[in-house]
C-alpha cells in the first residue's frame, strides 16, 4: 500500500537553516547538511530545501547546501525559493535536486512548467501554491504571500497539472506558523480536483493534525519544519502515531 509521506522542510538563508533548530547534541546547529542527516536517520521520507532569501549571493550557498545534502542522503530532495528560469532549475538539478519547486515564476510564466517538465519529466516539477481563504474559494498569493495573484487555488492547481506539474505543494497562509492544524478543507478541495499528489503545508502543531490532513484533508503528503525540531524522535513518533490510526507510513 502506498504510504503517506512525511516531508521535512529546511528554510535556509545563505547556507544556514533559519528557523530555530533546537536539537540537543547537534554540533553544528543550523547546518542544513547536519540537520538533513538527522532527519534521514529518523526516517523522514523526503526533504525540501527552501531558500527563503533567494538573493544572488545566497544562490551559491544554496548550491553548496544542495550538493552537501545530496551527497549523502538518498531520498527525494526538492529545492525551492527563487527559481525563476530554466537556468535556475538547471543549477538546482546540477547540484543534486531531484525536484524543483516553483511559485511566483509559475504564476507569471506558466509555460515554464511545461518546459521544465519536458526537460526533466513531470516528476521533477513541483508547483508551490500559497493560498488563503477568500469569498467562495481560496485566493492564491505570489511573492511569499505578499501579492494577490487573482487566481483560485483549485483552478490554478488544475492548470498547473495540465501544464506538466507533477506535484502540488499547498501552503495555507492562514495557518502557517499558527500550529493550529492544517487547512483540511482547502487541502481536500485541491487534492480532489487533481490527479497529481498534493503535499499539505502550514499549521502543523501536533500529531493529530497530520491524522486529520491525511483523512479529512485527503493529502498525499504533509510537510512541516518546526514540529520536527523539538525532539530527536519526532519523525519516528509521528509515524508510529499515524500507523496506530490506520494511516499507511514507512516505518
Amino acid at each position: 500500500m502506498l504510504s503517506k509521506r512525511i516531508i521535512a522542510c529546511l528554510d535556509v538563508r545563505n547556507g544556514v537553516v533559519v528557523k530555530g533548530v533546537q536539537f540537543e547534541g547537534l554540533r553544528q546547529a543550523g547546518d542544513p547538511a547536519a540537520l538533513a542527516r538527522r532527519y534521514n536517520t529518523e526516517g523522514i521520507d523526503e526533504l525540501v530545501i527552501l531558500d527563503v532569501t533567494a538573493t544572488i549571493e545566497s544562490r551559491r550557498a544554496l548550491a553548496d547546501t544542495i550538493h552537501q545534502v545530496a551527497q549523502e542522503i538518498f531520498i527525494p530532495l526538492t529545492v525551492g525559493g527563487g527559481i525563476r528560469s530554466e537556468a535556475d532549475a538547471d543549477a538546482a538539478v546540477e547540484a543534486g535536486a531531484d525536484k524543483v519547486s516553483l511559485n511566483t515564476a509559475a504564476l507569471k510564466t506558466p509555460e515554464l512548467l511545461t518546459r521544465l517538465a519536458s526537460r526533466y519529466g513531470s516528476q521533477a516539477v513541483v508547483v508551490a501554491i500559497d493560498a488563503k481563504r477568500a469569498e467562495g474559494g481560496y485566493a492564491v498569493y505570489a511573492r511569499s504571500g505578499q501579492t494577490a495573484a487573482s487566481r483560485d487555488a483549485v483552478e490554478w492547481a488544475r492548470e498547473a497539472e495540465s501544464r506538466g506539474a507533477g506535484e502540488i505543494l499547498l501552503t495555507s497562509i492562514d495557518r502557517d506558523g499558527t500550529r493550529s492544524g492544517f487547512d483540511c478543507e482547502m487541502t481536500a478541495a485541491v487534492s480532489n480536483a487533481v490527479s497529481i499528489p498534493v503535499i499539505a503545508s502550514g499549521g502543523a502543531g501536533g500529531f493529530d493534525d497530520f491524522v486529520d490532513v491525511f483523512t479529512r484533508g485527503c493529502a498525499d503528503a504533509a510537510l512541516a519544519a518546526s514540529i520536527f525540531h523539538y525532539s530527536e524522535s519526532a519523525v519516528h513518533d509521528l509515524k508510529a502515531h499515524l500507523r496506530a490510526h490506520g494511516i499507511p507510513v514507512r516505518l
Partner: peptide, 10 residues
C-alpha cells in the same frame, strides 16, 4: 486512485 503513483510503497 491518483495516477501517477508517487511515493514509498512495499
Amino acid at each position: 486512485l491518483k495516477v501517477p503513483h508517487v511515493g514509498w510503497n512495499s
